[in-house]
Design a binder for these strands. Structure first.
Lengths: 247, 247
DNA sequence: CGCTTAGTTGACTCTTCTCAAAAGCAGTGG
DNA sequence: CCACTGCTTTTGAGAAGAGTCAACTAAGCG
């Protein structure tokens, strides 16, 4: 099994075979979630952590007016809720945005890793900090960029993140979201989201074919969106042999 | 010295005297920054970490159009940049928003704590996760709440955070920010920020006296802002000393 | 094929932005 | 003590980006 978590963490530092064995071995079992189901809900504190293996999920919060705001996307290789290893309970929910396959990891396994303070613990912390960096960048996007730039920025990010776990083909990737969901993410109405996507298409920066997002000109899109990939901290793995990365 | 970091971390779990000694002992020396100065800048990777002892600082990113977006506030007790213990370099800057006193902590001291995997390491991770939770809530605020609710929400948060480190008196606290800075945080123009604050005053939810923010009716303000303090995870310290829930 | 969900488009409204200028306040130096 | 200067706060007026309502089209599915 090619574990997307391993692929992801190796962006940060080379993992030993022992490390990889630990990561492989920690999943208790695998569970499937249908699109729309919650993987974990507000207030919960289960005794296991979810590792997304396939599909897209989203962290979200519901507002009293009934609308939902998505505050993060989870793609294969992302740990959904290490939080519960440390916090009292979930302060948000995570829902499957497409059908998802998820590895169930006992909390103990996570705690063991955190307690061993080795490479793996570092790698987990790194991924937590990257998640945080992404949140900061989103905050800037929503707070200070126009709808069009914001959308372009989002597409750049998702392309690079998909690439990092081998889920992009060249400059395109599968984005199993509805426009409503993207709107709930970028703080726009569905109508305006639609118009904004149309504009990006008109500019010939992206093309959309079903659920495939095809970036026509990544250079231009990045320039347009004022996108600097530094915040993703996707440096090449530690300078060692055979370090391959999807490109 | 009453260390605000200790006060903060004890919200999460009780610290042993040994833990406290470590926290006290880790500061190498203290440095002062004048309002407007950068404490750490984009791209840097120094060999020490900053602990804010006095004053307010802010994480920010600059945009090509020249405007600045503030993505987090640091108040006494907050570690500014544990990030550099794990990431290659800062992906944002931290600036002093008022005159600040800062403890300089060698990176080694942080790494030692992280490596020992005890109470303290857990407490640091907890505070990182809380920072992340705050970012998520801000994202919801900017993305989905009106200017007025967003502002009210922000005031609620800062009051509770100040309280947690003993910097509030009842329902008021010192907020050493200009309206422009708050605007740069909430994604509003300075003009609209001003009008929004005026409205909150007219509603008699808050009063502003110089740099003092006085919350007139916290209950109402929280209800108005749709503020749920859960995300701050300010639970009382763990029930008993030895009660380790880890692993 | 009809049903349901997602995407598209138009027309109108409203929140928030921009430009502009006045007023308040604090620090400085004569 | 006062005039001067620079920054912050306040207010007005018009413009623009984004939201809402509503209808229509396209696409997946049993």
């Amino acid at each position: 099994m090619d574990n997307p978590l391993i692929r992801k963490l190796e962006q940060f530092r080379r993992l030993s075979n022992a490390d990889k064995r630990v990561l492989h071995g920690m999943a208790d079992h695998v569970r499937d979630y249908a699109r729309g189901q919650d993987i974990i809900s507000l207030g919960e504190r289960p005794d296991h952590v979810h590792l997304l293996l396939d599909g897209w999920a989203g962290r979200y919060k519901l507002l009293p007016e009934g609308n939902r705001h998505i505050v993060a996307y989870l793609i294969p290789g992302d740990l959904c809720d290490v939080h519960i290893a440390l916090l009292d309970r979930m302060d948000h929910s995570i829902g499957a945005l497409s059908d998802c396959r998820v590895a169930i990891i006992p909390l103990n396994a996570i705690n063991d890793i955190l307690n061993e303070s080795g490479n793996l613990s570092r790698a987990l912390l790194w991924s937590m900090l990257v998640d945080e960096a992404i949140l900061r960048e989103w905050l800037v996007s929503i707070g200070a960029r126009s709808a069009e730039k914001r959308t372009a920025h989002f597409i750049c990010e998702m392309l690079l993140r998909c690439r990092a776990v081998g889920l992009a083909e060249g400059d395109s990737f599968r984005m199993p979201l509805t426009q409503q969901e993207v709107a709930d993410t970028l703080g726009l109405s569905a109508v305006h989201m639609n118009r904004t996507l149309k504009q990006l298409r008109r500019r010939e920066l992206v093309r959309i074919d079903g659920k495939s997002m095809i970036v026509e000109d990544l250079e231009c899109l990045m320039a347009f969106a004022d996108f600097d990939p530094l915040y993703l901290h996707q440096s090449q793995p530690a300078p060692a042999p055979g370090a391959a990365r999807a490109g």
